[in-house]
Amino acid sequence: MFEIHCPYCNEKRSEIEFAYAGEAHYVRPTAQEQTEMSDEDWSRYMFIRDNIRGEHAERWWHNSGCNMFFNAIRDTVTDKFVMTYKMGQPRRTETQIEAARKNNAEQKAKS
């Protein structure tokens, strides 16, 4: 059991309150694009994901808490959350992730 920081509640809550909701920043083609795209491209959109080993941008859902979706950077190898951020915010850059990782280490050293 571990805790996840919810950016809406702005506090750490138990992992059992959350649900994984797939890869983040995955943009659905517009209705126009859908009518024009090939079946192959559509199936790639529907079913194929990057399945990254390591730091992964993904959606999470605080379904037993504030009921909001948010984005997170999680390491799929260690299952450690680097950072979480509100829905609609841009994809985090390598520098921002590095800064968050450093901040986490400092917080940990303090406590």
Partner: peptide, 10 residues
């Protein structure tokens, strides 16, 4: 005031 889980009940 929070919504959370008690055992498996919301």
């Amino acid at each position: 005031a929070v919504r959370t889980l008690f055992e498996s009940a919301s």
